[in-house]
């Protein structure tokens, strides 16, 4: 088995795919860098990301499987799952071998089905984040939100927020992956920084605009008043809003 490793980026993965074909490697595995190495007898190579090669793979795959097919591959990579590349590469090989058919429709193929599953999970997480982001207005007039999504969905939710909130500055920060996306009224920017979550609530409050806690309180009032007690259904409630998301949901955080 020959092992190719890449830098965790989508471009990096496509560069690795390019090399696998360029070097005509038949028995090859693509993995993320920095993970424990398994058994590989034929060789190991760290692929350096090459935008030009990545672009060629991208164009080829788009021609073979269309926009939706490419989206499935990118969504699957965003799972960050340890072995996701195995299924993705398997589907890519399948597609290149059968250029006349749209292999993404072959739900009887285990790797195609696995990609469909990954896509479903990532898509659900994307949709959840579009729903569960809760902005707080800070004193420098930035609507600020923190998230800890299961998958790396920030790159694919940015567009949604950009088309919706065009007249306010906002920042969504992924605490798990320590980066955020900032909209400055004109364009999106990726922001890398380390900052600790406010451990002390009063410290956090100082950063907020004066009215902010009042609007949060109004929202909590609304949330509790719109509930119908005689229809209580905790099972269904938790299915829709699993507890791991409560940390940043204004309506689930007790009053100041």
């Amino acid at each position: 088995m020959y092992l190719l490793t890449y830098d965790h980026s989508v471009e990096g993965f496509f560069s690795a795919v390019f090399e696998a074909y360029e070097r005509k490697l038949t028995n090859v595995m693509i993995r993320k860098e920095g993970l424990p190495l398994g058994l590989f007898s034929e060789g190991l190579r760290r692929v350096s990301t090459n935008p030009r090669k990545a672009e060629r793979v991208y164009v080829k795959l788009k021609a073979l499987m269309g926009e939706l097919g490419i989206q499935k591959i990118i969504y699957s990579l965003l799972t960050e799952e340890e072995y996701c590349e195995r299924y993705i590469f398997d589907v890519i090989k399948y597609a290149i071998k059968h250029p006349k058919i749209n292999v993404m429709q072959d739900m009887s193929h285990p790797s195609v089905l696995q990609l469909a599953k990954y896509t479903k999970s990532v898509h659900r997480e994307k949709h959840r984040m579009e729903a569960f982001v809760r902005f707080k207005l800070t004193c420098d007039n930035i609507f600020f939100a923190e998230i800890e999504p299961d998958f790396n969905v920030l790159p694919i939710i940015a567009k949604h927020f950009k088309s919706r909130y065009q007249d306010q500055k906002w920042l969504i920060f992924d605490q798990t992956r320590s980066y955020g996306i900032f909209y400055d009224l004109y364009k999106l920017e990726i922001i890398q920084m380390k900052f600790n979550r406010q451990s002390n609530r009063d410290e956090g409050l100082e950063m907020l605009k004066k009215d902010e806690p009042l609007y949060q309180s109004l929202w909590r009032t609304y949330y509790s008043q719109t509930n119908i007690r005689s229809r209580k259904n905790t099972r269904l409630h938790l299915l829709h809003v699993p507890k791991r998301y409560w940390k940043y949901l204004t309506e689930k955080i007790p009053e100041y």
Partner: peptide
Amino acid sequence: NNKDKGLGNATGMGICHSYTEDGRCVSLL
């Protein structure tokens, strides 16, 4: 669609921003 750099859009899919304890979707005020 959002027009003239205004606030908001309502395109296509709906979003449930939260759920009440009875399991119903909270999408609108």
